[in-house]
Amino acid sequence: MRILFLAGGSPATVYALIPLATAARNAGHETFMASTEAMMPVVAGFGLPAVPVTSAGMLEYLAKDRTGAPLEWPTDPVEHMTFIGRGFGRLAAASQPRLLELAEAWRPDVVVGGMLSFGAALLARRLGVPWVRHAWDSGEPPESDRGAWEELAGELAALGLDEPLVPDLFVEICPPSLRPPGAGPAQQMRYVPCAPQRRLEPWMYTKGEHRRVMVTAGARVNREQYLDFLRDLTGKVAKLDVEIVIATPDDVAADAAAGLDRVHAGWMPLDVIGPTCDLFVHHAGGGSSLMGMALGVPQLLMPNMAASVGPSERLTAYGAALMLTPGEDDGVEEVVSACRTLLDDPSYTERAGELAAEIRAQPLPTEVLGTVVDLAASRS
C-alpha cells in the first residue's frame, strides 16, 4: 500500500507524523512524506523518502497574500488564529500542482495530513482516496480551520463543494483528559516523543546533585527570533539553585548560555534527558508541552502564540502545570515563584505522572496503522 504523509512547514509538524509514518514504512508499506523544501533534510533525517511541494517557506505564506501583497499580523487573538489558518490555506493551494504531479507518477492509496495540512484534504478528494487528519499537538483552535477554508473557497468550488472537507479519520495524540471541549470523535494514538537524536553523554541520562530544569523556546530559535526570549527566560530560572538544560539549536547555544553557571546548552534528545528533569519551563509549544506530558514532568508554560493559550489552560487546570501569560512573566520574581511552587509542591509531579500513564495507555502507532490500512482497503 502507498501512504503519503503531508507535514507543515516547521520541524514540529514533521516530528508529530514520524511515529505513524515510520510504523508504516517498517510494516512494508511504500511511505512518502511531503513538506516544504526547507523541511526536506528534517524528513530525510528520519529515514523517510522526502518530497518537496513548494520552494517557499511557511512564513512567506503568512507574510503575503496570493498576489504577493504584504500582510500585517493581527494583534487580536482570535483574528490572529484566523490569520494563521489563512496562511496554511495559501500553503495548501500552492502545494497542489506538485502534489498532483506526484500523484500522477506515484498514486497514494491514502493521504495522511497534519492538523493544518489542508493540501492533504484537497489532494485526497481529487484522487478519491481517504483523507486521514493527524493531530500535531494538544489541539489547534477552530478559528484556524475557519480561516483556512475561507481562503480555500475557490479550491472547494472547483471540486463542486461549498463546505469544508471532513476527514475520513482523525488521529488524536492529545491525551483524552486534555482534549478541547466539544471535540469530535477520534482514533486515539499514543504520543511517542520524536526529534533528531545526537551522540549521548552520561550527564544526559543521569541525575546530578542539583535539581534539573529544562528551558526551551522550541526548534525555531535563531538570532532573529526567540533568542532574546530564551536568554531572558533562562536568566530568570538561573536565580534558582538548579542545574539548567537549555534545549536549543546548536548555533545559538553559546549565546543562550552566556554568563550562566551549571548550564548545558544545545540540541538535546529530550526523550532521553526529560526523565532526569524536575521541571520544564518553555514557550508552551505543542511539541514541548506533549513531551513534558509524556515524560511526566511538571511544566511552567509561557504561551507566545494565541493558539497555545487554550491547551495551556487545560494542562494547568489538570494540575500538571502553571501558566504565566504575557505581562505576568515580565518579572524575575513571578517566574522564580512559579518554578519554586512546581518544584516544591509534590501534587504537580503526581498529576504529571498520572497524565503520562494516560498517554502510555493509548493505542500504539503500529495499532493505529492497522486502522488506516483497513480504511484505505475499504475504499480501493
Rank of each mutant, 00 (worst) to 15 (best):
R314M: 07
G235P: 04
W149C: 01
S55I: 09
A294E: 00
W203L: 08
G87M: 05
C174P: 00
E60F: 13
V53H: 00
P130Y: 06
D330H: 11
V281S: 07
W203R: 06
D271V: 03
Q197V: 13
F229Y: 15
G128S: 10
L48C: 04
A157H: 09
W149M: 04
A338D: 00
L200W: 06
L279S: 04
E350K: 13
G266F: 00
M189I: 04
S144I: 02
N222A: 09
L62G: 08
F229D: 04
W136E: 13
P41V: 12
A361T: 04
E172D: 15
T54H: 15
A254T: 13
D228K: 05
V237D: 00
A256L: 07
V297N: 02
A320W: 00
S117K: 01
R212L: 06
A265M: 02
R107K: 14
E60D: 15
S347V: 13
A16S: 14
G114P: 02
F32R: 15
R146D: 15
E354L: 14
A257E: 01
W136G: 06
P303L: 10
F32P: 02
I273G: 08
R107F: 10
M268E: 11
L227M: 07
M189V: 07
L123E: 03
P363G: 03
P181W: 09
E334S: 15
G182S: 11
L260Y: 06
D65A: 09
A356V: 02
A63L: 12
P11C: 06
G266Q: 05
D374M: 14
S138A: 14
I18W: 05
A376Q: 11
A158M: 14
R25S: 15
S10M: 02
L127H: 06
T13Y: 09
P311A: 11
A121H: 03
R223Y: 04
S380R: 14
T276L: 07
G184E: 15
V335N: 01
P311F: 02
E79T: 06
G57Q: 10
A247W: 01
V110A: 09
P52L: 05
E367N: 08
G119F: 01
T366M: 08
E37N: 12
S117G: 10
L48H: 03
S117F: 01
A265L: 06
S380I: 08
E313L: 09
P141Y: 02
S312V: 07
P176L: 01
P275Q: 09
V281H: 01
P176M: 02
R98H: 13
G68I: 09
G9F: 02
E367D: 13
S380F: 03
E30F: 08
T67G: 14
P303G: 05
L6F: 12
A253I: 03
V111F: 08
A361P: 05
A338E: 00
D251L: 12
G147I: 04
A265R: 01
A352H: 02
A376T: 07
P49I: 12
K239M: 07
V42I: 09
L59C: 05
D109T: 08
A16Q: 06
P19W: 05
P269L: 07
A21E: 11
F5Y: 12
P70T: 12
T341C: 08
V252D: 01
L322S: 03
E140T: 13
E243W: 10
L159P: 13
L200Q: 13
G68S: 12
P74V: 09
P175L: 07
S289C: 09
G113V: 07
L71K: 14
V336N: 09
V78T: 15
